[in-house]
Design a protein around this nucleic acid. Structure first.
Length: 546
RNA sequence: GGCCCAUUGGUCAAGCGGUUAAGACACCGCCCUUUCACGGCGAUUACAGGGGUUCGAAUCCCCUAUGGGUCACCA
């Protein structure tokens, strides 16, 4: 009693008073409360987005609450404007919070404050109670003393840490403590953990199923020397008061689960249900490792924004990682919003999945293929405004023309899938504008330059934009025949008998006009380009072949 | 190193004691096609290894190997 007053003299509230401010939520027992609890660094990792998505889906599927809590108990991690960045980034992906911190620095909801730095009084109130109960004590050990203890433990091959008989200040007499305090020595508040138990127990994790854990014996720090709580302590108090029903977080937390369960027990709280998500991995050489924010640009959510992946594509991909039956569901429910998917924690994988850019690309291509020209135009415009000024200028200048181009092969039963991200569009469109056409040609290597030249020269004389599709192709065929090239079927029967096939001729024309071997329908492209431009391009290519 | 977790094709993964071991992406081949795509069809490829338990094991148990995580006054 005296010790508690000595250590935390400013605390006058009682836990009971605080409890009264955080009543049970008015929700059914099948409506869940989850939270996303980042540090305000402003940086969102793809794993963070994944976790946020899982939490959000889980809560909202149940008709529950999803809130944002800012874990800013470490000032070193704070970045100016970080909270706004986090809120904005998630909002772009359609992940919206029901309560918590908001981007303008305000907060909504009745269970605040939602920034831990503004809750120090609350943590200390519970800390004081733990001291009174003899479950917490001050530790004045310096960093050197702590290192010293660790070294001795290592020499003896013992588990390192502050616990049991190694916890030097665990048994300090009141007078000694008073002396330290009078000397102005800083202290941390430590938990008085049980000693020497090797009690094991089973915990049923919502994702991983049964896990075996050992009771915590470490006298972990509850309050740092500046009076601010550590993650563990703040977590127990906040998730209790804010009535979180499910704590869904990365599996790097699995090993501190014993501490958290113990804290809930010591504080007399009912613990939430835990679910630990396996990390998203990346191939590094021949081994897997967790995506790293330092080494891997694709770890940052910002990367997908810069590359111009549609947000929905990223969400769809993440959902397939989360619940592997999502893909099947999506196939059967093409028009339905992803929020209608019956998301399940149990279906989440227990081993870390490799991030598969090829799969994301596929999902994204399919998504974009279904959009109409106008939508593609608008999205690209928005993206280019921020990331590709040159493209932006062109898009603005040639709006109608661009939409005409984007409409090629779009809106039909089997649309093309050329674009996987907005950053692809510049390349996709480039040959339609002189400003962007780069004059690089991918001519086939198996044909003589001279013969290609000849083809193009002959074709220049024949081409007429008034030809319809059939007329256009008849000319290509006529040209082929005149130089001994045959139709595809004939050619395939005996490839050695002919110099080439009609496809070769089309390819040469295609490359001359567009620079590339792979483009949408050539006839439509040439009509879009108009006669004069086509002839110009053919001329240009002939010169390039010389 | 201690503790915890994981391990089905190149990748994501179904599977929860009896299956010809799904499906998707990627790759390859064929077909369709006036070219490029799209699409269709098909092929290759997997239960980490070893012991048990069982009539029967990818599924349960043990050991080994490999990978991951964690051991702060960071979250």
């Amino acid at each position: 009693m005296k010790l508690a007053a000595l250590l935390l003299p400013e605390i006058t509230d009682t836990p009971a008073q605080i409890e009264a401010q955080y009543p049970s939520r008015n929700l059914g027992n099948k409506q869940y409360v989850t939270r996303f609890a980042p540090s305000p660094t402003g940086f969102i990792h793809i794993g963070g987005l994944f976790a946020a998505l899982v939490c959000e889906r889980f809560a909202h599927r149940s008709g529950g609450i999803f809130y944002l809590r800012i874990e800013d108990t470490d000032k070193k991690r704070e970045v100016e404007g970080g909270i706004a960045e986090i809120v904005n980034a998630l909002a772009q992906f359609g992940i919206l919070f029901d309560e918590g911190a908001t981007q303008d620095g305000q907060e909504v909801g009745a269970y605040g404050r939602y920034k831990q730095s503004e809750r120090v009084n609350i943590y200390q109130t519970y800390a004081k109670q733990l001291i009174e109960k003899g479950l917490a004590y001050p530790c004045f050990c310096t960093e050197e003393q702590l290192n010293d203890i660790r070294q001795k433990q290592e020499a003896l091959k013992l588990t390192p840490g502050y616990y049991g008989e190694w916890a030097a200040h665990r048994t300090l007499a009141l007078a000694e403590i008073e002396q330290f305090l009078n000397d102005g020595k800083p202290f941390v508040l430590r938990l008085k953990a049980p000693e020497n138990t090797d009690k094991k127990f089973e915990y049923n994790d919502s994702i991983r199923g049964k896990v075996e854990i050992v009771e915590n014996t470490q006298d972990i720090v509850l309050l740092k020397s500046d009076g601010v709580p550590t993650y563990h302590f703040a977590h127990a108090i906040d998730d209790h008061l804010m009535r979180t029903t499910h704590v869904i977080r990365g599996d790097e937390w699995l090993s501190s689960l014993p501490i958290h369960l113990q804290l809930f027990a010591f504080l007399g709280f009912t613990p939430p249900q835990y679910a630990h998500i396996s990390p998203i991995m990346k191939m590094d050489g021949s081994s897997k490792r967790k995506l790293s924010k330092r080494k891997d640009p694709e770890a940052a959510v910002q990367y997908y924004h810069e590359q111009g992946y549609p947000k929905q594509a990223v969400i769809e991909y993440l959902l397939t990682l989360a619940n592997s039956n999502y893909e099947d569901w999506r196939r059967d429910n093409k028009q339905t919003a992803h929020t209608d998917f019956p998301f399940s924690l149990q279906k989440m994988s227990v081993s870390g999945a490799l991030f598969d850019l090829a799969k994301l690309t596929d999902i994204s291509k399919n998504l974009i293929a279904e959009m109409d020209a106008d939508t593609v135009y608008q999205n690209t415009l928005q993206w280019a405004e921020q990331y590709d000024q040159k493209l932006y200028d062109v898009l603005v200048k040639h709006e109608a023309y661009t939409k005409q181009i984007l409409a090629i092969g779009r809106g039909v039963q089997k649309p093309r899938k050329d674009i996987s991200k907005w950053a692809d569009v510049a390349h996709y469109l480039s040959y339609f504008y002189d400003e962007l056409f780069d004059g690089q040609y991918e001519f086939p290597t198996h044909l003589e330059k001279q013969s290609m030249q000849k083809m193009l020269e002959q074709y220049s004389v024949m081409y007429d934009e008034l030809d319809d599709n059939t007329g256009w192709f008849d000319k290509v065929k006529a040209l082929s025949e005149s130089i001994g090239f045959v139709d595809m079927k004939t050619y395939k029967k005996d490839p050695t008998a002919y110099p080439g096939h009609v496809g070769d001729v089309s390819t040469v024309i295609r490359v001359a006009v567009t620079g590339r071997q792979n483009t949408p329908d050539l006839h439509t492209i040439m009509q879009t380009l108009r006669q004069q431009k086509v002839l110009e391009r053919l001329q240009l290519a002939v010169s390039a072949l010389k």
